[in-house]
Amino acid sequence: MSEVADIAVVEKEPLLSKKNKRLLTDPLDDNNPITVQVLGVCSALAVTSQLLPSLIMAVCVVFVLAFANLAVASIRKIMPGRIRMIVQLIIIAALVTIVDIFLKAFAFDVSKQLSVFIGLIITNCIVMGRLEAFAMGNKPWPAFLDGIGNGLGYGAILIIVGALRELFGAGTLLGYQIINASEGSFLHGIGYQHNGVMASSPAAAMFIIGILIWIQRARKPKLVDIS
């Protein structure tokens, strides 16, 4: 009567269990790719002179990161060890080519502004870093979530830096004039001028990220670098 009773039932982990949710929220603050893991810094500096390219770049990176993680985690068991890096690079390059062509078709102005930096997503340390650190040792769904989480963490920093740089550099946000410092306005009267250096030099992004790191580590002493 009990022929069926002894088969063990494997508990399937719910799709958005606590562990999986942490994969999405950790990279936003605790394990942020830019300020804690020091990955993906190049593009964070170069594309953030305005808010719109930063937003588009963040979306592209989330897409590439999530699907590259998914792809590598799916084939990790059948990939030979010696050609691991080449295979990863080809997957990333293929995804970035798709993103590039997509952008050229649907957002041509922004793609001209971003020019080589879309291609540089291939060499974005976050993608390679997460592939090696996470996707190579985890199942496809958690890897996909980890990709989205890290992409969002990266995007959060990009949006903050982009917004600050555009706001103080040109007084606009997404093209809409917010701070009006033209001739005859109140701000012009007291001597305020748009800080052009912020908008044109990525050096300003370095200062902003330095201050973000300062704030983050002051709030969470365990992140302080004791080297």
Binding site: S201, A205, I209, W214, I215, A218, P221, V224
Partner: peptide
Amino acid sequence: VPAPLRGLGIAFIITGLMGIAFM
């Protein structure tokens, strides 16, 4: 260097200053 800035934070700020110098 203040503790939260030590290591990475100050490296960012130095690089920013070097960037402005190169401008």
